[in-house]
């Protein structure tokens, strides 16, 4: 019998005022799966993953994250968010704290870890993303690629069960994209459940279990990479692929 899914989204609909931005989304994510979501801008990809940790709220349908349903009356959204890590396009590190302080802020205050223990854990993670030498620098002193790796380490510091990536490399200079993608690939190999919104199709081909194509707020196509790139089922998908792979 299959384990119950980590994330279960059923008939999800969202509106911004009168604008119907997510239409009838149905999605199930099992433990250890790597999902890549792609699509043209404005298709609702970012909005969708932001609904998963309730940074955005939905008006219709249901979202279950590891058994807990996300509703307006939810008591402890903080607990859900601790188990779901998120990395943003613009890194969004706290500029007034050092790299190390960025990482230990949440563990110290939410997990009630003693400072020394939190710092040890943080240093281990910084080593994992190969940036331990910058631990005492301020984010403003780091390059974009370094900042994004710190952001990944910061999210990992809370021991999340799921990681969400919202276009993690779109704001980076080309030569830094690889260093960040390498970190994400290693995470995938270590068994993390992941949803990644990205335009990096090479990365998707190498790592993803499933690729989801979204357009106009709905899921158009969902398939394994081997099928997705070679035999797209819908015309929309084919048009999109022809535009981004040339």
């Amino acid at each position: 019998m299959a384990d119950s899914p980590m994330i279960k989204i059923k008939d999800l609909n969202k509106w911004y005022a009168n604008f119907h931005v997510l239409k009838n989304i149905n999605l199930s994510v099992q433990k250890g799966e790597i999902i890549v979501i792609c699509g043209p801008s404005g298709s609702g990809k970012s909005t969708l993953i932001r609904c998963i940790n309730r940074i955005e709220t939905h008006q219709k349908g249901s979202i279950h994250v590891m058994g807990t349903e996300l509703t307006p009356k939810i008591k402890n959204i903080s607990a859900v968010r601790r188990d779901v890590g998120m990395v943003f396009q613009n890194f969004d590190l706290f500029p007034h704290m050092t790299v190390l302080e960025n990482l230990v802020l949440a563990p110290c205050w939410l997990l009630k870890l003693p400072r020394k223990q939190a710092e040890k854990k943080a240093m281990t993670l910084l080593e994992r993303v190969q940036i331990q030498s910058q631990a005492h620098k301020m984010p403003g002193q780091l390059s974009g690629g370094q900042q994004q790796r710190v952001a990944i380490a910061r999210a990992l510091c809370m021991d999340p069960k799921i990681m969400l990536f919202d276009e993690p490399t779109s704001a980076l200079d080309p030569e830094m994209v690889k260093e960040v993608l390498d970190v994400i690939k290693q995470l995938a190999r270590d068994g993390m459940t992941m949803i990644c919104v990205t335009h990096e199709m090479g990365f998707a081909r190498q790592v993803a279990n499933r690729i989801i194509f979204m357009d106009g707020g709905e899921i158009v196509e969902e398939n394994a990479p081997s099928e997705f790139f070679t035999h797209p089922q819908w015309d929309r998908t084919q048009k999109f692929l022809s535009q981004i792979l040339d």
Binding site: N53, A79, R81, G85, M86, F88, D92, F94, L110, R154
Partner: peptide, 14 residues
């Protein structure tokens, strides 16, 4: 920026 609030929320900070 709103990004600061979002990343803080995502970490679970109240």
């Amino acid at each position: 920026g709103i990004g600061q609030i979002n990343s803080s929320k995502a970490l679970g900070l109240p």
